Every structure is written in C-alpha cells, then in structure tokens.
Simulated assay, not measured.
Amino acid sequence: MTTMLRAGLVLLAAVEWVLGLWTAFLPRSFYEDVPTVDLTPPFSEHLMRDVGGATLGLAIALTAAAIWLERRLVVVALLAYLAFALPHLVFHVAHLEHATPLEATVLVALQAGAVVLPLALLAITRRAGLPRAPGSPPASGSPGPASPAAGRRTSSPSPR
C-alpha cells in the first residue's frame, strides 16, 4: 500500500512542480498555451505569478510527504491539495459555457480526477500503517512504539 501511496503523491507533486514553475516564471505562456485557461479573462500577471508561487508551495508539501511518508505530513499535504482541487473543480464545472464539448469533457474529467485521487490516497493512508511523528500518541490512545513512555513507568504509583 505504501508503494501506491508514494506513487500517487509523486504524481500529484510532479504535476504541481510543472504547473507551479510554468505559472510562476512564464505566466503569459501558461495563460495562452494551456487550453481553457484563457476562457476566463482577463490575464493578470500578478495573479498568475502568485498562483504559481502557491502551487510551488503545494509541490514542496507533496514532495516532502512522498519522501518521508509520515502519516500527519501525508494527511496535511493531501488536505492542502484538496483545498485547492475541490473549489477548482466546482469553478470549472460552473464555467463551461465557452468551452467546446471536447474541452469541457477533458477539463471536467481531469479536475474530477484531481479530487478523486487525493481522496483515494487519504483512504490508503488510513490503512497503510504509516509511521507517526515522534512523540505522537498511537491511534488507540494507549502508549505504543511512537510514545517515548511506552512500556516504562515514569513515576511511582500513587500511594492510594
């Protein structure tokens, strides 16, 4: 399961690296050359560069999650990605009037996939047995291997 999880994170991160670098450093090209982006004018270099920078931040989080595969890091990276992907899908579904039928179909399919994939990865994360951050309590709430106090008494018993 961790192989599938890592592969999904790498895929999401790779897409974000490409889009982030392109948008941040060649915003006019991104606006003019990516199909459907120019369907909602006007072009704003400032906004495109800002989106590129935010996308690069997301790429960094997804890359870190893919490298370390620590449960909280993976969950936070995927939720951050969904915080972008879900409203992005909703926007595009509501603004298809200037798209051709082919553009609309491809756009909605890609945007829906950008929501379904991280949701599936979150489900895998729950079952993958990923390591927890040092010092975090295990899911059951009882001391476990992630707890420094696991199996050790840190104080004497109560005199009661």
Rank of each mutant, 00 (worst) to 15 (best):
G151F: 13
A14R: 00
P27Q: 04
L107D: 15
L102W: 12
L58Y: 00
L119T: 08
L119M: 14
H95C: 04
L79M: 08
L5N: 06
A99Q: 09
R28M: 06
F43I: 14
E103C: 12
R152G: 08
A85P: 09
W68M: 07
G52L: 04
P42Y: 12
L86W: 04
W17T: 00
G141Y: 05
A77R: 09
A7W: 06
A65N: 06
L73A: 10
I124Y: 01
Y81Q: 13
A128C: 05
S156T: 15
V37E: 13
P35K: 13
R152W: 12
G52Q: 05
R153C: 08
L78Y: 01
P137Y: 06
V10A: 10
E70Y: 06
H98T: 14
P35I: 13
L119R: 03
R127Q: 11
R126C: 06
T100Y: 09
L89R: 05
L56G: 02
D33Y: 08
R72Q: 09
F30D: 00
E70G: 12
M48Q: 15
A54S: 07
L79Y: 09
P27M: 03
R6Q: 15
P87V: 03
P157R: 15
T23A: 13
V15N: 02
S136Y: 07
P131Y: 00
E32K: 09
P118K: 03
G8R: 06
W17R: 03
G20A: 03
L122E: 09
G57P: 00
L69D: 01
A24Y: 02
A104N: 11
A139L: 08
V15D: 00
G144M: 08
G141T: 08
R160A: 15
E45V: 14
S155T: 15
A99K: 05
V93T: 06
V90L: 13
T100G: 15
R160F: 14
L12I: 05
S44E: 12
T100N: 11
V75A: 09
V93I: 12
G20Y: 01
A120I: 09
V93E: 07
F25E: 05
R49W: 07
A149C: 10
R6G: 13
V18C: 02
A83S: 12
F30N: 04
H46K: 09
L122Q: 09
T154V: 15
L117R: 00
P118F: 02
A7T: 12
T23K: 13
V10P: 03
M4Y: 13
I67N: 04
L117P: 02
P42R: 10
V75C: 04
L58P: 01
Y81F: 11
H92R: 07
A85C: 05
P42M: 13
L62W: 02
V15R: 00
M48K: 11
P131K: 03
